[in-house]
Design a protein around this nucleic acid. Structure first.
Lengths: 187, 187
DNA sequence: TCGTGCTGACTGAATATTCAGTCATCCTAG
DNA sequence: CTAGGATGACTGAATATTCAGTCAGCACGA
């Protein structure tokens, strides 16, 4: 499938390194088919962002929700830790996400989609926090959620550029969850 | 001056989006002069990153150390908040840093330098934390520092891709400083 | 007149994009 | 059931565009 190939290539060469011809070859289709489906290069990028999002959501749903339905804090921890897994899929997703984030600084078209995806993701984490501490007001939960997801992006960038081991990144995000929940619980 | 124009353009289009012809136009010089001075595109990039670095160091020194020498917590806050200033200099610096981080995912050569710069930065923040809470053990301070700097990178990415307002980013990082210091102070 | 700083038109290779046409499939009138 | 027509996924060669890098030469101070 074309989108899978695109995610693979972006993770390997970056958004800017993505060549339509290479993508076609990787996907085993013709050059023209890419344009038939996506209009232009920017269309490929937009579609890939969406694809990555959906895949991450599906992935999260499969690996988290099934288990600890009873323990909301475990669900929160698992959800965030999921991004620090050394599997091809997760690494690919994180790399592509980081690339898209970096590209969005210079590409107005990507910004809207990325901002929306971020908003949704923040909201989901805020909901998980609210599940742990139902008494906390929504805006406080959202604040904590934004910090946690932004931290996750920062740690992810360091992990992928070999600035941090996976274990260290996991420990740091767990510590942050502790801290945020503690602070919220004390209000 | 060519370097200033390059910094401006990198902030606008990114390292990857920097066009020699565009740089020449922005600097008000000819295409060929760029090559006369810098040999090739990579040379331009190297010189510009050095230029940006020097400027950032000067900037930090000027705006933080001079003032609140007496109040270590204010120094910590000011240092981190400095990255969320909507001035050309800061924006250019943050953008370049984000570009570097993103590029390092695909460029092994960049990794070593970036990792070292990150290590130094983390250490400096850890020292600032230690100045606020001298009783805290070094590894705990470093842990908090890594979380704060990684969070800062994450928030910076969102700010620059218009996913977050400057005020919101500032509020979030201040909240994180509060949280980390509180948690450390309670041990 | 020589050297140095500089110009800007130009080139070639890499890429993006287009387009005329093929092929399999499904629908429908006879 | 079946010829033929409509559809849409797909191809790949042709064309357009983009850019880093080159080069012949101008201007001017020493």
């Amino acid at each position: 499938m074309i989108m899978e190939a695109a995610a693979r290539l972006i993770a390997r060469r970056g958004v800017r390194g993505l060549r339509i011809e290479e993508l076609a070859a990787e996907a085993g289709v013709s050059n023209g088919l890419i344009y038939y489906h996506f209009k232009d290069r920017a269309g490929v990028l937009r579609a890939t962002l969406e694809f990555i999002n959906n895949r991450a959501e599906r992935y999260t749903a499969e690996h988290v929700a099934a288990e600890h339905l009873a323990d909301p804090r475990a669900v929160l921890e698992q959800t965030l830790l999921l991004e620090f897994q050394d599997t091809a899929e997760v690494r690919e997703n994180s790399t592509a996400w980081g690339e898209l984030r970096a590209s969005a600084m210079f590409d107005v078209l990507l910004r809207a989609d990325l901002a929306e995806a971020t908003r949704v993701w923040d909201g989901e984490v805020a909901d998980l926090i609210a599940a742990v501490l139902p008494a906390v007001p929504g805006d406080r939960a959202l604040e904590a959620a934004q910090r946690l997801t932004a931290l996750l992006e920062g740690l992810s960038g360091r992990w992928l550029s070999e600035g941090l081991t996976l274990d260290r990144a996991r420990a740091l995000i767990l510590g942050a969850i502790d801290g945020e929940l503690d602070a919220l619980g004390r209000v």
